[in-house]
């Protein structure tokens, strides 16, 4: 089974989000970068499926040259090939253009399954997987918390829970499935995996200049951190000496009678 996994390089924001002076991007001078937890799980799921059915896992990212770092991280987890569709530094590519670029890579291979995250953790567009599926003419399922591929490898069952109900979707292969964290527990990269990833080749291709003309324009003008209500925590005390005060607060909040 040939599997393609799409991963996006995003900043790892920890305690707070700081913006650049023009408020058009996150200030990443002090932050690291990673792929989203959903996508880590997509890579893990792909590696497990390839282990069971044979075949290889290819990872693809649309992003700046530095996204090679994230692709190598995926190689260390067991992917065997990586493709970087390189964009100019600092450029933000919208979901439609992203899907088109990923489509060019997907269509050039012979994949049975394409996995993505349900949503990118930074922009949260909730659509690249579905747009990619339409470009390929393949069926799609989203938000999967479990994927079961039939023994014959011809179809799969993708399921999730929604409003307390389990929804199961059966899809013939080839298909596109977007997944959510929790579908599996991703492994840590092994030392041999990391060494292999260091030496592996990452194929770089430039992003196509003439994408499809979209039927509309969506343009970010500015980013803004919402105001958090500023609270001043009341310190109830140190260690178990704080317990009587803690009990009093629980009673005051009506949590205990």
């Amino acid at each position: 089974m040939e599997i393609l996994v799409c991963v996006k390089r995003v900043p790892t924001v920890g305690g707070a989000i700081t913006l650049t002076a023009d408020s058009r991007a996150i200030d990443t001078r002090a932050s690291g970068f990673a792929i989203s937890p959903h996508e880590e799980c997509a890579v893990e799921e792909a590696v497990r499926l390839a282990g069971r059915f044979g075949g290889a896992v290819t990872v693809v990212s649309l992003g700046p040259a530095e996204a090679e770092e994230q692709l190598r991280g995926c190689l260390a987890l067991g992917a065997s090939a990586a493709v970087l569709v390189e964009t100019a530094a600092g450029a933000e590519t919208g979901p439609m253009a992203t899907a088109a670029a990923l489509h060019s890579v997907a269509a050039a291979g012979a994949f049975d399954l394409i996995l993505l995250g349900n949503e990118a953790s930074d922009t949260g567009g909730y659509q690249v997987g579905i747009r990619l599926a339409h470009l390929l003419g393949w069926p799609a399922a989203t938000g999967a918390k479990a994927i079961t591929v039939a023994d014959d490898g011809l179809s799969l069952l993708a399921s999730r829970s929604y409003r307390g109900v389990t929804e199961a979707f059966t899809l013939p292969l080839p298909c596109v499935v977007t997944v959510k964290e929790g579908i599996n527990l991703p492994r840590y990269p092994s030392l041999p995996g990391r060494l292999r990833a260091k030496r592996a080749a990452v194929k770089r291709i430039p992003v196509a200049a003439d994408g499809p003309v979209p039927a509309g324009d969506f343009r970010m003008t500015r980013l803004r951190v919402p105001d958090a209500p500023r609270k001043q925590a009341t310190v109830l005390g140190q260690g178990s000496a704080a317990v009587p005060a803690l009990v009093a607060v629980l009673a005051e909040l009506g949590v205990i009678s």
Binding site: V13, I17, T123, A215, G216, D217, F218, R219, L223, P226
Partner: peptide, 11 residues
Amino acid sequence: LLLEEAVLDAP
């Protein structure tokens, strides 16, 4: 955690 202000110009 972050808000995006944008202009949508579509049919």
